[in-house]
Nucleic acid binder design. Structure first.
Lengths: 187, 187, 187, 187
DNA sequence: CATGAATGAGGGTTCATTCAT
DNA sequence: AATGAATGAACCCTCATTCAT
């Protein structure tokens, strides 16, 4: 799994061959096939593990603060890759490739969907909480959550395909200005 | 070129082999290599042609209306794929794959960057015009443009990887509510 | 024909493709096939023309001097490529490749054989003349001719495969010392 | 390796394809690529092994006799292919092609050069020994060695391109008469 | 649990040649 | 006389996968 991660970061999805993974792991291709019958299965397991970590990651937010505004910002920050963090950039890029390539395979879609739903409802409930306690004005929490997530995803894609390393950062600011400020304006 | 388009839509980037293109075009691989020395060259030409059409597409907007608000909405609509249009969905998906895979090749990056800049500044100038004539409140046009474009891109990605066909539509609504309404509120 | 010559020198036998010849000649492959049905035919014609020129070359020697010793040296010099003459080196190299590749094709062998016989008997008769007029001691003219020609050929091969540009020159000196001096010793 | 040898003899360098080697070896192309990453590497290894055997071959001479004259003749005999030995003829022919084609690749040149130097100095030291003990008259050992080797190489080339199967034999006689007899004349 | 050897399908590319104009 | 378009075979090489040990 670790080897898969590293190869994915360093070589991208195109370079994610069984040979490369085995070499990175310091074993043989055969051994990998002993544990995972097929490459698809390996990738499935890898994605599963990765998405699980993402979930755990989100839970931490709730223990950090109670303020809806702070929570929303903290949430956004999880998905913002710092310009200097080349490794994480490469990784997000690779995950995007992986998602794209794997999308028309049955097993993957379900996982991705489940994960996305989790993220989305986490954010939506933060917003709903904010509405309930009067911090935010009344909006549809899910629609707003989608907007925020889409914007962040789009920024990462822009970063991956065009290279402007600061894309996620400016996206963060834009979200703050146009979404967050908008939500708390009535205040 | 047409064959490339169709293969890309039907098989995705992974299935975009010379053999597949030739088969789709009803010719031989050799003939394709006669016209394009290398696969990269073919893809480059393909992307070029596609991006050119995108550019032309944007120009049309300016002739349709003078109202900044209407213009902005028209602009957004260009990048929203209707749920029913499966072909276009597949195509946008494929283009995204293409962009991702090709991003670390010199020639591609420049093209993609140039095209993205064109789109971005077109949208930014629509916003700037709106600010100037008092329709919109004072914001940074480029940051706002990035937000809108990122959100739309993210929605398409969500659609491509998860399958919610309505993603772009809801993104459109979210942009209308959180960005456009926000811009014209002072009115 | 000229184009064939140039391609052969610049690209070697491996690079002697119809495309390259056509490009060098500034025409199309099709036109070449119009004149020569097949590549083999073209090469056959080329070799023919080249060998003819070699023959003419040899005749000139007889008009230059009557002295057997001088004639023999003049003859040798025809087959010695100067270290500085990179073009001729490349050409001899290419001709050797051509001869080797073509050797198991019917037509070629006859031509090469005829040409080699001409060269050989020209040199042999120079030696025979020398024996007759008492300049040289009695040897078998043909065996001696073969030795000289083989040595020169071997030196060119050494030059072609190993790169010592002076190989033919030292071969020339060796022939002078061991063969020529030997022939005229009784003097 | 054996398969490479046989294909080289039977089909020549032009027919030395991965497919042919695999077929001859009774396996698949893939397997060959498993052992040798690239065709060049395979050929390099093949050449290496062949040249090594040549070297061992030379060493044997020294243990056969002490007489410089006999040694020199024994040495020459190593490079003389008997007219009847069609296999060896084909092989020498193929090696010559290989050397010619491969000459402009870095790795090959070094090997060829090293091997040639070894052969040359082996012969040169035989001659030098003969001079020292008074068997031979005083000549430059290296120049004479080059002459002998060039003559033998040229004879093999003649044999390969023209087919006179006795070429190396007559070359052997010519060397004996013009070089060896010349060396021992003072006796 | 672990490996090296082996495989077949398919990757992009190049070649001499042919065909229609 | 001359061309661009088209072809099929063959090129080297890579891949995920399997098999015997």
């Amino acid at each position: 799994m670790d080897a898969t991660y590293h190869v994915l970061c360093e070589e991208g999805y195109a370079g994610l061959t069984m040979r490369a993974i085995a070499a990175e792991a310091g074993t043989s291709k055969s051994l990998i096939h002993y544990h995972f019958d097929t490459k698809e299965e390996l990738l499935l397991t890898f994605l599963e593990r990765f998405l699980d970590r993402l979930d755990e990651w989100l839970v931490e937010i709730e223990s950090e603060t109670d303020d809806p505004e702070a929570r929303l910002l903290a949430f956004v920050d999880r998905f913002v890759v710092q310009p200097a963090d080349a490794d994480r950039q490469a990784f997000w890029r690779a995950v995007l490739e992986l998602r794209l390539q794997a999308a028309h395979q049955e097993g993957f879609r379900e996982q991705l969907k489940a994960n996305n739903d989790a993220i989305r409802s986490a954010l939506a409930s933060i917003i709903a909480d904010g509405i309930e306690d009067g911090t935010f004005r009344e909006v549809d929490p899910e629609t707003t959550a989608d907007l925020v997530l889409d914007a962040l995803e789009g920024a990462r894609t822009r970063q991956a395909t065009l290279g402007p390393e600061e894309a996620p950062l400016t996206a963060r600011e834009a979200v703050r200005e146009h979404v967050l400020d908008d939500l708390v304006r009535e205040e």
